[in-house]
Design a protein around this nucleic acid. Structure first.
Lengths: 213, 213, 213, 213
DNA sequence: GATGAATGAGCCTTCATTCAT
DNA sequence: TATGAATGAAGGCTCATTCAT
């Protein structure tokens, strides 16, 4: 962002050919993400990323075409982590309420890692379609999953049948995402477990959860 | 020594003494806010603000000490608008549910205008205490108001008595704020009225709202 | 947030790692000093310094943190030159009067090179403690040396014993320094040798110099 | 300086026609001098001068064509003061040594008031001939006076006959001027009377002063 | 490939001067 | 004449990117 769309005269970096190259690239990626998450835009400069990764300034451009290129790679990594995380959430528990609690805990944690980066990126993404698409995809995945969960409960007669699953998932998902921001970024002094329990309780009441049909 | 010592020697801008001055200052304030809301950080430069306000570059500094000074003034204006808006939300309706709907509509609108600016600022406020304090104050005001509303319902026997009012207000407030972002910034294609109704319904169920004690 | 918070995020310049770097830094230092000496404050801008050194604007900041940083480096260089110059002044001559002549010649030359820069800086040093300290140190060094010389003459019974060495050194040092200014900056049309001889004669009479005890 | 030589489009201010106008002009002149003497170039801006004089910004240009115009007026005032001061120094005392002491005291005081301003101006005067001429004239006046005094002593057989009066006056004048700077600007902690006495003693020895022919 | 110097467009800010009222 | 707002050229500094070795 800022500089997006500048004409490229750089040789486009290709995938590292050697193991050493891969390590260097990973170090840059990790350092960039760390910097972005912990110190914001201001610290996210090629020079500081390179330094944090322990390589020289010029090396940055051996592995990334530009600062934005690194940013895209970071978002890609964050998005993939969220996908992975969303898969491990076990739908296997017996009790619907327990499933909701676990699911909320999982969401909260997923957003905890992602929301710093994602919010930062959201503001610059106006001009970058690749980024915007990634962001939307991440969100959509969570919405979809929530909607499917609700639909199953409705079909089992365990939740209000006349709630629109998708809209409900969007709204309740919004709640969880913003709570992650409130807790982890704004540092409202709240206990994570307490929040998870409270959110789950509100969520359960909101959809009219019943333990038995 | 002319150029040594970057310390400001000229007096800081004071309130405009003439009507013309007030008009110019308002134009700059408005232009700055508009630019920030619609085009983000990138467009928020003194030069572009001045140009958008139809005055010359130097005039910016007749009214604002710095770019950050304007930013603070914008946030102050946004915060005041939110307060004003929050006051018009009528607590006078008879039916609790109607009150919730109206209140949610009010919240959504308040955040609609504010959330672009507020989110932008949230990320830059790392280094500016005045800004951070303003942001916290805005949020706290909304949380407080929500908590009081819930407490009254509980005392009237119209809502679950064992919900912690403050935590509940934080969580449900988070839901509304993030929905404003989803609708107005991410442009998820949702109908505002539908969202208000749905949120209100979920909210009402969540707190176990009863029409009569 | 890109543009918020003027705090430096990039690392401060370090000593050049390569010979090329060293050459460039020296060129900037030399150009800066030259500009300051010959054209005063007005010409002492990073842009003009860079241009005079034959490098681009940005390169200035590869080697100096700021304009003031360069100024400090220049003063440091000038001060070191004066120290060096003061050392070569031979205390080895047999005749006290010859020593005074040589010493005055040395002082005059030392101030000749330094006084432009030092006077300029004296007026800007209000705000910079590092600079002020350097200036005081340079002066003190000369005063100290003059006082020691006089003390030795007094102990040898070659000069008035009741002159306070330090005060005398300050006063006579002031004479030499200002004469350097008068000759080299104000360009009073005087012959350097003649001035040296005259000053030495006045100096010798002033302290009651005797060739033999 | 700095901006000297900018083309003038201002209406040239004329001498104030009214008493009120004269007072305002004097207030600006006084405020400007005060600012220059006590706070240096940095504080010497039309805006601050106007404020210190208790008039509005724009009024400055009613009385002075430009900042440099005020500067010239200040230098003129300082120079006139020095002339006046140089006249009051009584050549009437009987004892030559007492005359020297009084004369040095007078010089020191004259330079005390002037040297701050004069040194400041010296650095910018490269480009302004009117200023440079004033500065040289001030100095010349003092040199001339010193040389005449010495010549009279020589003719009376009270001082070394083979000292060149003018060169001697230049050198000893330099001593006094620089001591004023050392005491009043650099704030070397010296007692004024002690310095006057010491300088006079050195001066007297230097010219081989005798009380009686 | 890796390194670190070089580049320059762009941004923030100041301030001498002009202008409208 | 007095006022205070308006102007814009000039200067300091940053940082993404390119280049020479």
């Amino acid at each position: 962002m800022e500089t997006m769309g500048r004409s490229r005269t750089n040789p486009a970096p290709t995938a590292p050919a050697t193991a050493r190259g891969r390590r260097t690239r990973d170090a840059l990626l990790g350092a960039g993400r760390e910097l972005l998450e912990t110190r914001g835009w201001a610290a996210f400069t090629p020079e500081q990323v390179a330094q944090a990764a322990g390589v020289s300034y010029g090396t940055f451009y051996t592995y990334f075409e530009s600062k934005d290129d690194l940013l895209r790679a970071i978002v890609r990594a964050v998005a993939e982590e969220m996908f992975t995380e969303s898969l491990v959430a076990p739908d296997t528990a017996d009790e619907p309420y327990v499933r909701i609690v676990e699911s909320n805990r999982g969401y909260l944690r997923a957003w905890r890692n992602a929301s710093r980066v994602l919010r930062l990126v959201e503001q610059g993404a106006d001009s970058d379609d690749a980024l915007r698409r990634m962001l939307l995809e991440v969100r959509e995945r969570y919405v979809h999953r929530g909607a499917e969960g609700l639909r199953r409960l409705q079909e089992a007669g365990l939740a209000d049948r006349d709630l629109d699953p998708r809209l409900t998932a969007i709204v309740l998902g919004a709640m969880v995402e913003q709570m992650a921001h409130v807790i982890y970024s704004l540092r409202e002094p709240l206990d994570e477990d307490e929040v998870v329990n409270h959110m789950s309780r509100l969520w359960a009441s909101a959809i009219g959860l019943r333990e038995h049909p």
